[in-house]
């Protein structure tokens, strides 16, 4: 059943609407577990569009296998998606800083408040992202250490390669998952691929993860294929590689390659002089789970993240 979660008249002639597809058994007992799947928070991240489509399609195909509630919110920042804008258009703010929202603010805060209100009551929420235009990411769940213990069993079902447990000091206070966790909804972020594109292999991997999660929650009796078991990355396991010069980054490796400490990750070159500015090397051994996708680099730009830990 399609429902409108938030709506507001825009400046002229159109109405902004955030919608969800409420999928529930025909004769619910009222004690069903509930999973909320959210995507399209950042308007330039489109993988979630396919993931939501595929999840809904597969549930509808085997509807009798559904024994709980799945609420799918494919586009919570609809104007951003239309305008290819990561942020909330006009206000130019990152929606993921506006939660839990407010009904006394901008249209972004208003929408955020109504979305949170609607999701509260879910047992689990998965917020599907697909990185930024700058970095390509391996399928990963991101959770904060202060809630990791509770959420990890669910995160492990998501069929990703990595679960990255962030230290609680880096918690994003205005984010959707932070707000929901504060309100008692176990929530996690899934990242994969790169913005503006759909990586179908990665996306299908996450779709399988969502069905595995549903099976684990006891709300799905149908097929689910758990093909990946995640490696868990703590704070110490992840090395950030930042550029110390500017220019164009030419990678020497491929995304998700295993590298040894000292291996060349790529070169930063000066397009005017035709000479190299910097050779970027791996500060530790491990798997390159994030790699620069957008080639223009400034001093400080993130070039790669390496997951040591069990890959070392």
């Amino acid at each position: 059943m399609i429902e409108t979660v938030a709506s507001a008249s825009m400046l002229i002639g159109e109405v902004m609407k955030v919608k969800k597809n409420h999928l529930a058994p025909d004769f619910p007992s009222g004690r069903e577990k509930r999973l909320s799947i959210v995507s399209g928070l950042h308007g330039d991240e489109v993988s979630g569009q396919y993931i939501c489509y595929e999840v809904i399609r597969r549930i509808k195909k085997n509807f009798e296998k559904l024994t709980g509630i799945v609420d799918v919110y494919p586009f919570i920042n609809p104007l951003g998606l239309e305008a290819q804008n990561r942020y909330v258009p006009v206000f130019d703010t990152d929606m993921n800083t506006l939660f839990p929202g407010s009904t006394d603010g901008t249209v972004g805060e208003y929408t955020a408040a109504l979305i949170v209100r609607d999701i509260v009551g879910s047992d689990i929420c998965v917020d599907i992202h697909s990185s930024s235009i700058y970095m390509k990411e391996i399928p990963q769940v991101r959770i904060n250490s202060d809630v990791a213990e509770e959420i990890e069993p669910y995160a492990k079902k998501m069929n990703t390669d990595v679960i990255w447990v962030h230290p609680s000091s880096t918690v994003m206070l205005g984010s959707l998952v932070y707000s929901l966790n504060e309100m008692g909804v176990k929530s996690m972020v899934v990242e994969s691929g790169v913005a503006l594109k759909i990586d179908y292999d990665y996306a299908n991997q996450i779709v399988e993860g969502l069905f595995s999660l549903m099976t684990y929650m006891g709300i799905w009796n149908g097929e689910s294929n758990h093909t990946h078991s995640p490696k868990i990355a703590g704070d110490k396991d992840v090395a950030y590689v930042n550029a110390e010069s500017s220019g164009i980054f030419i990678p020497a490796i491929k995304h998700s390659d295993i590298v040894k400490k000292g291996d060349i990750i790529g070169n930063i070159v000066n397009v005017l002089t035709g000479s190299p500015e910097e050779t970027v090397t791996a500060p530790r051994s491990g798997m390159v789970f994030s790699l620069r996708e957008y080639p223009v680099i400034e001093e400080g730009s993130l070039v790669a993240r390496i997951f040591g830990g069990t890959y070392e």
Partner: peptide, 8 residues
């Protein structure tokens, strides 16, 4: 010059 519904 113009405003959205439900904004302050």
């Amino acid at each position: 010059p113009m405003i959205y519904q439900n904004s302050v």
